Amino acid sequence: MRHTADDPEYDWPTCCACGRDLWHTELGRHVCRICEDKTAARLTELPALFTQLNTIAALTRGARPPEAATSGSRVPPIPPRLDVLSLTAAGGAATRLRDIEDAWRTELRRTAPSWTVAPWRGCPAEAVPEHVRFLVNNLPWAAGCYESIGQDVEDVRHLHAECTAALSDDRRPGRVGVGLCPVVLDDGLCAAPLLASAVSHRIRCGNCGTEWADMAAWCVLRRQQEAAQAGEAA
């Protein structure tokens, strides 16, 4: 809030999210249309970002730290991504979006048991799109009528930034090593390094061309790697 030159006793209303003076057409709102549009765009992008993060989490969940690798192991441990796991696990992105939705529902006075016990709420991958759908649909109301919207706009901005930063990590730009190729060729074990991407379930060996196309195939890959390691040890 600040005084105008024309009327020093009048506090011109400002956006509670960015502090910008509201236009005459925005008077009565809590946040400006610019912040509303940016928040809507960030919310709309979150489900796709979360899907990519969840793929990385599936690869690194339960991983051993590097020092846990046994000496001479041909199947190195998958490096854990704690920044990713913190966003995809309980208390992460889904929980943070849920808390905003629940606060809005309370303000709207239409919280229903069928919503609070919805089966998808226990699964972050299913919950994120549902929370986003509700928040995007009700954002115009919140921008105009919900006094705490400024903090929620900031929370969404932080969450979007954290998801984007986790996916653009320069040290591991969405790809993690998942051991060596266990395929036996005419001249012996392929043993080429395998990489998994954050944007695809497919793992492909760049040397022999063998592919593992989905989560079930990853389990097969791990068993093959363990069998190859056991064979060499013998």
Rank of each mutant, 00 (worst) to 15 (best):
V153P: 00
A165K: 13
N138F: 08
S148W: 09
Y146Q: 07
E101N: 07
H158M: 11
C123A: 13
L135P: 02
R133Q: 11
A112H: 15
E162G: 02
A143P: 02
E162Q: 15
A142F: 02
R157P: 00
A161F: 08
F134W: 08
F134E: 06
R105P: 05
G144L: 02
H158T: 15
I100W: 00
W104A: 02
I100M: 12
W115P: 00
D99S: 10
R133Y: 01
T116A: 08
T106C: 05
R121M: 06
W141R: 14
H160L: 09
A127Y: 04
T164S: 14
I100D: 01
A127I: 03
Q151I: 12
E101C: 08
L108T: 06
V156M: 07
C145I: 03
R133M: 06
E162L: 15
V132N: 01
I100C: 04
C145W: 12
D102G: 04
G150H: 08
R121D: 05
S148Q: 13
I149V: 15
G150F: 04
Q151N: 12
E126Q: 15
H131M: 07
A165C: 10
G144T: 14
P124E: 06
R109T: 09
D102S: 08
A127E: 09
F134Q: 06
A161W: 10
A142W: 01
L139P: 00
L97H: 02
